[in-house]
């Protein structure tokens, strides 16, 4: 197996996803199969092919740097916060 349970658990931890032992096992198999398929793809000769970055033939759009006198309504944005205090969003204490 290309990806064992330990690796799967690490990936899950980094993505903050909780897995049961059974799920960890199943996903290890799935992920290994995906990687194996990638290995197969690697065998194709793409020496003369440019990498495709996006399927659409469009260019990156740019935004103008214009002075806005006011941004989005602060109260409305804070209203959606799960927890707040005054003008601050608050979260359970993070200790460095």
């Amino acid at each position: 197996m290309l990806i064992d349970k330990k690796v799967t658990k690490k990936i899950a931890f980094l993505a903050r996803i909780g897995l049961t032992e059974k799920e960890a096992e199943d996903f290890s198999k799935d992920l290994s199969n995906i990687l194996k398929w990638m290995e197969d793809l690697k065998k194709i000769d793409v020496k003369n092919v440019d990498p495709l970055r996006n399927i659409n033939d469009i260019e990156l759009l740019e935004r103008e740097d214009i002075d806005f006198s006011k941004n989005s309504d602060q109260r409305k944005l804070l209203a959606n916060a799960p927890k707040k205090n005054g003008n601050f969003f608050t979260v359970p204490k993070v200790i460095e």
Binding site: L60, L61, E64, D65, S72, F88, F89
Partner: peptide, 20 residues
Amino acid sequence: NENLDLLDIGLPGTLPTINS
């Protein structure tokens, strides 16, 4: 929290557009 755009607080459905 005054200089906020929807994107800056990661609200769903917002997309980045680069500043020229």
